[in-house]
């Protein structure tokens, strides 16, 4: 594991520009997907509205950088901060909803923000904003930030799952009755996870849109983001820490290889998704774990 992480962290030193780009995208997708996994796989919160935090993160770096000249790292942090604020506000509504209703509720929030931003003169309506960072970042520098987020997100979920919070989540997942009797605590655990996921997702979004140089409401708040996250996590294996790693690698690889055939590549993604659910409903890592009986990054204490 250590060797692989080190190799990933030093890609700019030995790899081509193309590889840097490849692993940059990998790290960011991994980060955001790992957070979706924390929600859907460990906390039972199937959010279809994660794009709301991607949009907020993207707009944060744009607004903070362009309008207020804030330092780029602080702008990225601000993206996480605003996402947490929004998540808190959202929780007032959506945490009253269960199951499917929660999923739809999160999605509706994302749609509301999409419409709001596209009608808001401050962020130039639907045209979107160019992003100027202070100071300007090189490709390699953005890569390192993404790398820190990627590794950090995996480590974070790992440590969360070994903490009291994680034990509570595991108990909830394994036994519905336990969670019934823990009422208030369950609510608090789920809320923590939702806020943590919002924070990290908002930051990752900032880095992504710095790289994109441009943020626009119809893309930033699009359900397409969540479609990709669901794809990554379920293909890789929901509720496993390694799942999003494998899934993100597959997604970035496929989208790069098939970049010239945009719609065909998505057709293939869809077909792969369906094939995996039919053949290996627990995803690649989930199925491997069940077959081989071991986990590389076991969150359970020995």
């Amino acid at each position: 594991m250590g060797v692989l992480t080190a190799a990933l962290g030093t890609v700019p030193l030995w790899g081509s520009d193309y590889l840097v780009l490849f692993f940059f995208l990998f790290c960011l997708y991994l980060t955001v997907a790992q957070m979706w996994n924390l929600l859907a796989g460990y906390s039972g919160l199937i959010s279809l509205g994660q794009q709301v935090f991607l949009g907020i993160g993207g707009y944060s770096v744009a607004v903070m950088g362009n309008y207020y000249g804030l330092n780029v790292l602080l702008s990225i942090l601000a993206g996480g901060f605003f996402s947490v604020l929004l998540a808190l506000f959202m929780s007032l509504f959506i945490f009253r909803m269960k199951g499917v209703y929660f999923s739809i509720g999160t999605w509706i929030f994302a749609e509301i923000l999409m419409i709001w931003f596209s009608n808001w003169s401050f962020v130039k309506y639907g045209t979107g904003l160019f992003i100027k960072t202070n100071p300007p970042l090189s490709t390699n520098e953005t890569f390192y930030i993404a790398f820190v987020l990627g590794v950090g997100s995996v480590a974070l979920v790992y440590f969360i799952m070994r903490s009291r919070l994680g034990l509570g989540l595991m108990a909830m997942r394994d036994n519905e009755d336990v969670s019934e009797t823990m009422g208030v605590q369950v609510f608090r655990y789920k809320l923590y996870c939702f806020l943590i996921a919002a924070f990290i997702t908002g930051m990752a979004a900032g880095v992504f849109y710095i790289f994109q140089v441009f943020v626009q409401p119809y893309k930033a708040f699009s359900i397409d983001w969540t479609v990709k996250l669901v794809f990554i996590v379920i293909i890789g294996g929901i509720g496993t820490i390694e799942g999003p790693i494998v899934g993100a690698l597959i997604l970035v690889f496929l989208s790069q290889v098939l970049a010239d055939y945009f719609s065909v590549s998505l057709l293939i993604l869809g077909a792969i998704a369906i094939a995996v659910i039919l053949l290996a409903p627990k995803g690649i890592m989930g199925t491997l774990q069940a077959k081989l009986g071991f986990e590389i990054l076991s969150p359970r204490r020995k």
Binding site: I46, V264, L267, G270, A271, A273, I274
Partner: peptide, 16 residues
Amino acid sequence: EPPLLMAFGISIIVQN
């Protein structure tokens, strides 16, 4: 989750 992702998969395929 499985029916959800199945639907997502169908959705992606139909759109594209």
